[in-house]
């Protein structure tokens, strides 16, 4: 009896163990290790030299880091709002009963998500090249890749293109969870579509919208492939005015300063934590109301 009891107790851990082993070895250990390295100066070979917080200090005083942060913020500001409006509008259209037949087509909007960011960046080079699709269709000659601001707009467009389908799907789910009776009641009361959106649906979906904005902000911080591929070759560009903050991490690895690279990583983590805390408090606030 006792033996089987112990066996029974072990079973769940056995189920858990493959995952935990993988997770500890390939995630937790490297994470802790990278924190230790961030306090040293280490080339990846030879001796690691303890330097304390110097790496963090150096990065926080490095304008390339702040340019990266600024760029990431710019990308976020340029794309988040537009993206949310588009996905929200599309979700609103698709989920309203009048457009029932469209719901079969909603998969189209999710398709760009299946295209890898790398490929998306490559495709969009043809769209925005000097004699590309955009310039031809609108009969203009905008030098998209000659000017940093314009290039940032291109990156934002790619981000909107690739990501709005995701939030669209999430918003559709959110809207179907809004009690249809409330909406019906509002229609009977004679509320216009606009009133319905701003007075009923948006307040009810406030949490999802906030969540979307913050998560999108977090993924902007992690942006890497699109801005780099859109202007150059693979890999991280040397410090330029369009490089995201991840470039500094990748460059530091490529330059063999693992200490610096880890420090950039953990600074990134701190920023993401701050965003997460903001999200949590924001969501809690509305719940109290």
């Amino acid at each position: 009896m006792k033996v089987t009891n112990i066996r029974e107790k072990i079973i769940p851990y056995l189920f858990l163990s493959p995952f935990l082993v993988f997770f500890l070895v390939f995630f937790i250990y490297p994470a802790l290790n990278s924190f230790y390295i961030s306090l040293t100066s280490y080339k990846g070979y030879g001796q690691a030299k303890w330097v304390g917080w110097k790496n963090y200090h150096a990065i926080l005083h490095y304008d390339v880091f702040w340019t990266g942060i600024r760029n990431v913020l710019t990308y976020w500001v340029l794309h988040a709002g537009v993206m949310m409006i588009i996905s929200f509008t599309m979700a609103f259209i698709v989920s309203s009963p009048k457009y029932q037949k469209l719901s079969r087509l909603k998969v189209i909007l999710f398709l760009p998500r299946v295209i890898a960011p790398t490929v998306a960046a490559l495709i969009f080079r043809a769209v925005f090249s000097s004699n590309g699709l955009f310039n031809t269709v609108f009969g203009v000659t905008i030098p998209w890749f000659q000017n940093d601001t314009l290039t940032k707009i291109v990156v934002a467009i790619i981000l909107v293109w690739r990501d709005f389908g995701y939030w669209f799907v999430v918003f559709v789910a959110g809207m179907t969870s809004v009690n249809p009776e409330i909406i019906d009641a509002s229609i009977v009361d004679g509320a216009t579509t606009m009133q319905r959106i701003f007075r009923i649906i948006i307040p009810l979906m406030k949490n999802i919208l906030k969540f979307a904005l913050i998560i999108d902000g977090i993924s902007s911080l992690r942006l890497f492939s699109i801005p780099n591929i859109i202007v150059g070759q693979p890999g991280a560009l040397s410090p330029t005015s369009i490089g995201p903050v991840m470039n500094l991490l990748v460059q530091n690895i490529q330059q063999g300063s693992f200490g610096r690279a880890s420090a950039v990583g953990w600074l990134l983590f701190i920023m993401i934590s701050i965003l997460t805390v903001i999200q949590m408090t924001a969501v809690r606030d509305t719940e109290d109301l």
């Binding site: 080339k43 990846g44 070979y45 070759q233 693979p234 890999g235 690895i253 490529q254 330059q255 063999g256 693992f258």
Partner: peptide, 19 residues
């Protein structure tokens, strides 16, 4: 290592790091 002249020594460092 990549397309630029700097790429080869950067990769060299990484190769040293990975034995």
């Amino acid at each position: 290592g990549g397309t630029g002249a700097t790429d080869s020594y950067q990769l060299f460092r990484l190769k040293l790091a990975s034995n």
